[in-house]
């Protein structure tokens, strides 16, 4: 699903942010990308969804070379990738349903089909019956559930989560991780960037570790379990 081949990204502020990264993630995997703040996790995710271009190396997402993608093709790449952030990034001026409809409309889905899809998505993330609520009326965990529903709107093959549980209490975090696990069980590839080792320990999945822009370890789930 994701292939990094000797990828380097340098913003010209001294050391490269990412140095000669090579790894691949198979379809259907749920992997964690860990590292301290500034390790390059967010830059790595931005390279995957086309917000940045590598200075060298190749990145392939679903067999598509995204490292040399034309700017006009980036939106179409992103429609196949769900992106979830720490702060949920819901539009305060739209209801829960409005936020989801907005994402569906961007992908060209409207009318009755979109409304049905909204109901289906809210059901899937455990937010059925909350369509008319405003983001401000939701708890942090609920907002993140809606953000996950929005990321799933186009039924993407890949979900990128950037510190998606960073603002949540442990109980809520566990609920959200369970939700991610269920989404992964349904076949969606997930790359989850976090600096929270508790998240990694709870899930027992493959862990890619970034330190200073370099991949210092890539432990498969069974080995990760042994590390506990």
């Amino acid at each position: 699903m994701i292939v990094f081949d000797h990828v380097t990204k340098d913003f010209g502020h001294g050391q490269p942010v990412l140095r000669d990264l090579s790894f691949h993630i198979e379809p259907g995997e749920l992997s964690f990308l860990i590292g301290r703040s500034g390790a390059g996790k967010t830059t790595l995710l931005r390279l995957i969804y086309g917000a940045e271009r590598p200075d060298s190396g190749t990145i392939r997402v679903a067999s598509r070379d995204v490292s040399r993608l034309r700017p006009g093709s980036v939106p179409y790449l992103r429609r196949n990738i769900g992106i979830i952030f720490q702060d949920s990034k819901l539009l305060a001026s739209r209801t829960v349903a409005g936020n989801l409809l907005f994402a569906l409309q961007v992908a060209g889905i409207g009318g009755r089909a979109a409304k049905n899809r909204v109901d289906e998505l809210l059901e899937r993330v455990g937010m059925a019956g909350r369509a008319a609520d405003w983001p401000a009326e939701l708890s942090g965990g609920e907002q993140q559930r809606v953000a996950i529903a929005r990321a799933l709107a186009n039924d993407p093959a890949l979900i990128l989560a950037d510190e998606a549980t960073g603002n949540l209490d442990p109980d809520v975090r566990e609920e959200i991780l369970t939700l991610f696990d269920a989404i992964n069980q349904a076949g969606t590839t997930i790359l989850f960037a976090t600096h929270d080792m508790d998240v990694v320990r709870e899930m027992r999945k493959r862990v890619l570790t970034l330190v200073g822009g370099e991949m210092v370890s890539d432990r498969p789930p069974e080995l990760e379990a042994a590390y506990r």
Partner: peptide
């Protein structure tokens, strides 16, 4: 957000 969810210019 529009850009992130794949909206064209």
């Amino acid at each position: 957000i529009m850009r992130l969810i794949g909206a064209t210019n």
